[in-house]
């Protein structure tokens, strides 16, 4: 299933047939809705289903790889890199799944160690810190849309390889396969139609008894 096909299906169901040109809702709006719902479902899967099996890694369908991300000096001491897309919010900032030098040698495997905001300050005077290295590994903190490095790494690592837990709307063409499991397609259609008001909201039975609300 592609983003375009899914969006068209929702659009037709909403309009009850082929939509006319003067429709208030555009197909582009529906496409955005599809991607937002896909991100939501993938995040839910990571936090609930995967966790039950003791699996922390997000499904590979959820990871987008970005090469050639430039680092830049930030002030006189630190450096930073602009995130190519906003990742989904996961515990411990796991939405930023992988950061390493974008090099043609073995350093490509040298994954940076993620730190929570402010952690660097807590441990920077410990014995296992030397320069920017924590037990020999480079570190970063996520600061909004930037990755921040404790020292200036622009000369040694000008480019980064970054993997984000995100379904990036801009990266997907209309006829690219939507990176979601097949069983999520129907859920996306249902949720989008519900958001558009085409389906009645799911009934909630507030009373805890044997009788259904209806």
């Amino acid at each position: 299933m592609t983003k375009g096909l899914l969006a068209e299906r929702i659009f037709r169901l909403y309009k009850g047939g082929d939509p006319s040109d003067d429709s208030g809702l555009g197909i582009e709006d529906v496409k955005r809705m599809v991607v937002a719902q896909a991100n939501l479902l993938l995040k839910t899967e990571t936090l609930t289903l995967n966790k039950q099996f003791g699996e922390e890694a997000p499904t590979n369908l959820m990871l987008a790889t970005y090469e050639d991300v430039s680092t830049e000096a930030w002030g006189t001491v630190q450096s930073r890199a602009l995130l190519p897309a906003m990742p989904v919010s996961l515990p411990l900032n796991a939405g930023v799944w992988w950061v390493s030098p974008d090099a043609d040698d073995a350093t490509r495997h040298d994954q940076f160690i993620p730190m929570q905001q402010g952690q660097w300050n807590l441990i920077r005077n410990e014995e296992f810190i030397e320069g920017n290295l924590l037990l020999g590994n480079r570190t970063y903190e996520v600061d909004g849309k930037y990755l921040v490095f404790p020292t200036d790494i622009t000369s040694t690592i000008p480019k980064l390889l970054i993997r984000l837990a995100v379904t990036d709307f801009d990266e997907l063409g209309d006829y690219d396969l939507l990176p979601i499991p097949a069983d999520y397609e129907e859920q996306i259609v249902q949720e989008c139609l519900r958001l558009l008001g085409a389906l009645p909201p799911a009934e909630v039975d507030d009373t805890n008894d044997a009788n259904s609300k209806s």
Binding site: G54, P91, L92, N93, W97, Q111, I113, P114, Q119, F128
Partner: peptide, 16 residues
């Protein structure tokens, strides 16, 4: 333990 690299710092500190 099937944990990601995001749990590294705390455990490194405990090791130290």
């Amino acid at each position: 333990h099937g944990l990601s690299i995001h749990h590294y710092v705390k455990r490194a500190y405990l090791g130290l």
